[in-house]
């Protein structure tokens, strides 16, 4: 089979997988942000117990491979009677994992905001939570955008791991195609090109967006 023929015959399936990949990425990046904010606020502003829990959780997730986390969710949970579909396990795993990393990026953003902002908020009578919600968070979330876009692209690539536990994203489709026409190398090459293209486009979109939003301050966070 020539490369051209392979491209034509595989593309529909691959694109199906791509849709799932993109969906997983967007979902995980988004939910990951929510989780990240919660974890981060717990770590920075919580009492000792909350802080310890958050730090412990963050370090645990960041210190272990994502694949292991996926395995625990997909193969481990059934022991307790929780049976997740591969897609669900993958989504939960990515959300939690991304949440932990994003918590750290947001923390960096918060730390880059001077302590004076908090003091000023207090000086007009705000409570700690008012100050965090109205003054610190809006600024931190703006500063974390570069790191967030990095995280998005990271997720785009690492969703490929989900195929190992059987989620129907692009890698899984590639394997399926290849195992039928035995053109392993060329199929994977094609897949590589698709990833390249998607990552490149995403990066372009984000850098345009960033330029539009014009955030002063430093870049926080790189996996």
């Amino acid at each position: 089979m020539s490369f051209g023929q392979i491209v034509l015959s595989s593309m529909p399936r691959l694109l199906n997988g791509l849709v799932v990949t993109i969906y997983m990425t967007i979902f995980s990046a988004g939910v990951g942000m929510l989780i990240g904010v919660l974890l981060c606020l717990g770590r920075v502003y919580g009492n000792r117990l909350v802080r310890a829990l958050c730090v412990g959780f963050i370090e645990l997730i960041r210190g272990t491979p994502m694949l292991v986390q996926l395995f625990i969710l997909y193969y481990g949970l059934p022991v307790y009677g929780i049976r997740l579909t591969p897609l669900m396990a993958a989504l939960i795993g990515f959300c939690i994992n991304s949440g932990a990393y994003q918590a750290e990026y947001i923390r960096g953003a918060i730390q880059s905001i001077g302590s004076g902002q908090m003091k000023a908020a207090y000086s007009i009578g705000m409570t700690k939570w008012q100050a965090v919600r109205l003054i610190i968070l809006p600024q931190a979330l703006r500063r974390v955008i570069p790191a967030w876009t990095n995280e998005f692209i990271y997720l785009l690539k690492y969703t490929s791991m989900a195929y190992i536990i059987g989620a129907p994203e692009m890698m899984a489709q590639a394997k399926f195609i290849a195992s039928r026409n035995f053109e392993f190398f060329r199929v994977y090459l094609l897949t590589a090109f698709v990833y390249l293209a998607v990552v490149w486009i995403a990066a372009e979109i984000f850098s345009r967006l960033e330029r539009r939003l014009r955030i002063p301050g430093t870049v926080i966070g790189e996996r």
Binding site: G114, G116, Q117, K119, A120, A121, Y122, S123, I124, G125, M126, Q130, L134, I135, P138, Q139, R142
Partner: peptide
């Protein structure tokens, strides 16, 4: 603290708010 006004050496204006919002936010939220 609402009855005490404090002016800092470093101003500490809220960077993400306009001048009007800076002055207004205490009135609205607090």
């Amino acid at each position: 603290r609402q009855k005490i006004g404090y002016v800092f050496q470093d101003f500490n204006l809220f960077n993400h708010l306009t001048a009007l919002d800076n002055v207004r936010i205490g009135l609205v939220k607090v």
